[in-house]
Design a protein around this nucleic acid. Sequence first.
DNA 1: CAATTTTTTGACCGATTGGACAAACGTTAG
DNA 2: CTAACGTTTGTCCAATCGGTCAAAAAATTG
Lengths: 209, 209
Amino acid sequence: MEASVPRRTRIQQEKRELILEAALDVFSANGFRGSTIDQIAEAAGMSKPNLLYYFRRKEDIHETLMQRLLDTWLAPLRELDDVGDPITELKSYIRRKLEMARDYPRQSRLFANEILQGAPRIMPMLEGELKSLVDEKAAVINGWMHAGKIAKTDPYHLIFAIWATTQHYADFDVQVRAVLGSDRGGEGRFEDAARFLEQLIINGLKPAG
Amino acid sequence: MEASVPRRTRIQQEKRELILEAALDVFSANGFRGSTIDQIAEAAGMSKPNLLYYFRRKEDIHETLMQRLLDTWLAPLRELDDVGDPITELKSYIRRKLEMARDYPRQSRLFANEILQGAPRIMPMLEGELKSLVDEKAAVINGWMHAGKIAKTDPYHLIFAIWATTQHYADFDVQVRAVLGSDRGGEGRFEDAARFLEQLIINGLKPAG
DNA sequence: CAATTTTTTGACCGATTGGACAAACGTTAG
DNA sequence: CTAACGTTTGTCCAATCGGTCAAAAAATTG
């Protein structure tokens, strides 16, 4: 049973979690090449050789982080379901994505960094798992369009637009804050964004009268 | 006259351009810390000491690149004008931004990299020049809204949405290609994106009947 | 031509990097 | 207690990094 997962002691599990948490901080802020093992080790409160006892190579940390990220990152899209009302479904999808940008900005930036560099480490996943999922959900949206529930348009670019607009608030956070200024740049910006995006997209998808 | 600009020979001007062109390749693909002077020098076809003869520090190259970028990067928004028809103005703004994502993807990624890392080198510009420009254009859009020309919504988040969706096709290019696949991932994707975005945003901004 | 200035290069430097390793330390089971 | 095992650390290493420097080569000037 579970032969592929190496057996680990309690300490190993805890320390590995500690390292991954610290590495998420460092990698998401500096990128892979911009981060050093020393930085991660210091953020995790341990020495470099000690960290390397738990992860033998810097890349192993990044790889583990990426695998976990992808599982949770696509969860909102997986939930997009055929059964409900299209408008309600799309609204809550937008809301879930925006909540992830608000609550997990480091994960968003980690992902953005990887894609920006050409996705050298996760390209197979993009062409495999991600593409199939998007194909599947694009078909669902397409069904809604042909049923006259929402306006006919390109479902793929619709998904891109939702990704882009929601993740923008995590990836370009400093720019958003700088532009909004101190008065409007507080936590309320996510509520404003949610209201705006729902109005824009739902209104923009109203079936042609 | 022009005392602030150092006098340069023809060779100096040409070689500096060559270096900046090579550095744009390298920086946009690997980020600042992920890029080495050797890489840039090789891409420019010269030795490292020779490159350092034209730019004394790695950061000088990046800084020059950034200054040039910002001048051209905000040009589309500057052109957004009060005089024309709002819908036409917004449509052509989207089209210009999308053309920049298509024609200058390296510049877009260079900018995205900088923002992702917290904009350490251009923060003053974000809070100064950029914020004033956006404030000014948000006021223009606000005028259209109060005149009943387009639906009332948040002009700042509208601008963010246009930025996010258009730049997405440069910054997340590999993901877009992977998802669209070989059949739809060709150059036609920018035309599809343009059609989709215009429909979405213009439809989404139709004044409430 | 020769003198001067600009451009290019090879060799080199100290700092930082990812990682190896053995020894020391701590914990646990018999 | 003690032997075995798991954990931690100091030290070290080769490679790579950004950058210097003096001298050679090339271009420009008189």
